[in-house]
Amino acid sequence: MTDPDDKARLDALSARIDAVKEEHAPKPRTPDHHSQAQLAWRMVIELVAGLGIGFGMGYGLDAVFGTSPWLMIIFIFLGFAAGVKTMMRSAEEVQSKRMAELAEENDHPQR
């Protein structure tokens, strides 16, 4: 038979092992809210929105000032530039989140 003292030590050791296992257990993967397809659609929509807004502003100003099609052409290029800038900002945001995730994984390597 085992001593009560041995039983208590085994229980304490078992509790410590369980705590370490829980600490190093792999985390369940949560669904990624920014999958590659969603990111691609977001970027396409940002670009098309920039082009659409630029076209609308240029067309409206051309109608007011009678400068057809010059302001429309200028504002289409400005809208394109704004859309590309917004796309780049979105890409940087996603990249910085991914780098933070990788840094966190490297700080806590799995065994």
Rank of each mutant, 00 (worst) to 15 (best):
Met88Pro: 07
Arg16Cys: 04
Glu23Met: 13
Ser96Phe: 14
Gly83Ile: 03
Ala63Val: 01
Ser96His: 14
Gly50Met: 03
Ser14Phe: 15
Ser96Lys: 12
Phe80Lys: 09
Ser35Ile: 03
Val64Asn: 00
Ser14Glu: 14
Asp32Pro: 03
Lys97Phe: 12
Ala63Gln: 03
Met99Gln: 13
Ala82Val: 09
Arg29Ser: 10
Glu46Leu: 08
Val84Pro: 06
Gly52Trp: 00
Ser68Thr: 07
Pro31Met: 07
Glu93Lys: 15
Ala82His: 07
Lys85Phe: 14
Val64Gln: 02
Ser96Asp: 14
Ala12Trp: 08
Pro69Arg: 03
Val94Leu: 10
Asp11Trp: 12
His24Val: 15
Ala63Pro: 00
Ala25Cys: 09
Asp18Gly: 14
Gln38Asp: 11
Val64Met: 02
Arg16Thr: 06
Pro26Met: 08
Ile17Arg: 15
Met72Pro: 02
Lys21Thr: 13
Ala49Trp: 07
Gly54Pro: 01
Lys21His: 13
Ala91His: 13
Arg42Tyr: 03
Ser35Lys: 08
Ala37Cys: 04
Phe80His: 11
Gly50Arg: 04
Ser68Tyr: 05
Leu51Glu: 00
Arg42Pro: 05
Glu92His: 14
Val94Cys: 09
Lys27Ile: 09
Met87Thr: 09
Ile45Leu: 13
Ala25Glu: 09
Arg9Val: 15
Lys7Glu: 11
Gly52Leu: 04
Ala8Val: 12
Glu93Cys: 11
Phe55Asp: 03
Ala81Val: 07
Gly83Val: 05
Leu71Met: 05
Ser68Met: 08
Ser90Gly: 08
Val44Asn: 11
Ala25Gly: 05
Ala82Met: 07
Ala8Leu: 11
Phe75Asn: 04
His34Thr: 07
Lys97Thr: 13
Ala91Trp: 13
Ile74Trp: 05
Lys85Gly: 12
Arg98His: 13
Gln38Asn: 12
Ala37Pro: 02
Glu22Trp: 06
Gln95Asn: 12
Glu93Asp: 14
Lys85Trp: 14
Pro31Val: 05
Asp11Tyr: 10
Leu10Phe: 12
Leu78Ala: 10
Val84Cys: 06
Met43Thr: 04
Ile53Ala: 03
Val20Leu: 14
Gly52Gln: 01
Ser90Val: 07
Gly66Phe: 00
Ile74Asp: 07
Leu71Phe: 04
Ile45Tyr: 11
Leu71Val: 04
Pro31Ala: 05
Ile73Phe: 05
Met99Phe: 12
Leu13Met: 12
Leu71Asp: 01
Ala25Ser: 13
Asp18Thr: 15
Ser14Tyr: 15
Gly66Ala: 00
Arg42Phe: 06
Ile45Met: 11
Ile76Pro: 00
Glu92Val: 13
Ile76Met: 08
Ala8Trp: 08
Ser96Tyr: 14
